[in-house]
């Protein structure tokens, strides 16, 4: 695993911060170990918030509905899905309907009194909707409108605190609430890692991002380059430069979490024994 930031228990305050766990939505990630760990933490009095993705479930539903996703390329060469209205509807059904309910069910069956929330609920994750995106098509730069995406700028951590205080474990799902004006919003797609980062920042929590690899690699093709800890600014900058593709998002999420107030961030493999407890041990 890769740890970012300082160890949260070393500050001497004695205050144990909540834990935010990001569970991946890829099929390669089995949530069973994570669910057991959350149950263990909660049984020991630790406050836990789970944030999940679900891209595999979204892909499956789009496929079953015969919706062909449009993938577009940004000027800097990143490829992403364009979330039109029809895709957005399927995204909401799969994420907030299916994956969230399944995970809440698994948690409840493990003895955790889970409450599922999307980022729309109580404006939990709110930010401007991005409708227009810059894309490159046939070598031409274009503005494409009608995207449903956004980045959370405000977290309603009061809603999470209220639920945590009553012994519930919030299970948070995209979409977020994307504002189109001062007072009107709509559900929009948002990256679950960034959502988890925003939640961890809002709660001053330790963030554990579970994924299907052991951590962040300086060179993704070389397992020997796993980075164990990023403690100094220089190490951090070097990592940001080194991270590629899929890992760029994890590093960005870690950065955003720490900048917005998270106590620590660990990127760790979901498919090991006690994945969250191991990550917290390392971090704490």
């Amino acid at each position: 695993m890769t740890g970012f930031g300082s160890a949260p228990l070393a500050d001497g305050s004695g205050e144990v911060p909540p834990v935010v766990v990001k569970l991946g939505g890829a099929r390669a990630v089995d949530p069973a170990g994570a669910v057991g760990d959350v149950a263990h933490l909660v049984a020991n009095g630790r406050s836990v918030v789970v944030v999940h993705g679900g891209s595999t479930a979204v892909d499956d539903l789009l496929d079953r509905l015969g919706i062909e996703s449009e993938y577009v390329e940004t000027p800097s060469g990143v490829t992403g899905r364009f979330t039109d209205a029809e895709t957005m509807e399927a995204f909401t059904m799969a994420m907030a309907g299916q994956v969230n309910t399944d995970l809440v069910t698994a948690m409840k069956n493990a003895g955790v009194d889970a409450v599922g929330l999307s980022g729309v609920d109580g404006g939990l994750l709110t930010g401007p909707r991005k409708s227009a995106v810059r894309v490159v098509e046939d070598g031409k730069k274009k503005i494409k409108r009608g995207d449903h995406s956004g980045t959370p700028k405000r977290v309603n951590d009061g809603l999470l605190d209220t639920l945590l205080a009553d012994g519930y474990t919030p299970v948070v799902s995209p979409p977020m609430f994307g504002m189109e004006s001062e007072s009107e919003g709509t559900p929009v797609n948002t990256d679950a890692d960034r959502a988890a980062a925003a939640v961890a920042g809002g709660l001053g929590a330790e963030l554990v991002i579970l994924t299907d690899v052991a951590g962040v690699y300086a060179d993704p093709d070389d397992p020997d380059t796993l980075i164990e800890s990023v403690a100094t600014e220089a190490a951090y900058d070097a990592l940001t430069d080194a991270a590629e593709g899929f890992m760029t998002r994890k590093v960005m999420a870690a950065t955003e979490a720490l900048e917005s107030g998270a106590a620590a961030v660990t990127v760790a493999d979901a498919n090991v024994r006690d994945p969250i407890l191991a990550a917290l041990d390392e971090a704490g």
């Binding site: 800097s76 992403g80 899905r81 979330t83 991005k130 503005i143 995406s149 980045t151 797609n189």
Partner: peptide, 23 residues
């Protein structure tokens, strides 16, 4: 400049947009 119409062509200032993909 963004092409907002083509016949006749009309241009407007292209919006600044953060590069950022959801999901």
């Amino acid at each position: 400049l963004e092409v907002v119409d083509v016949s006749p062509p009309v241009l407007d200032r292209a919006p600044e947009l953060e590069e950022d993909w959801g999901e």
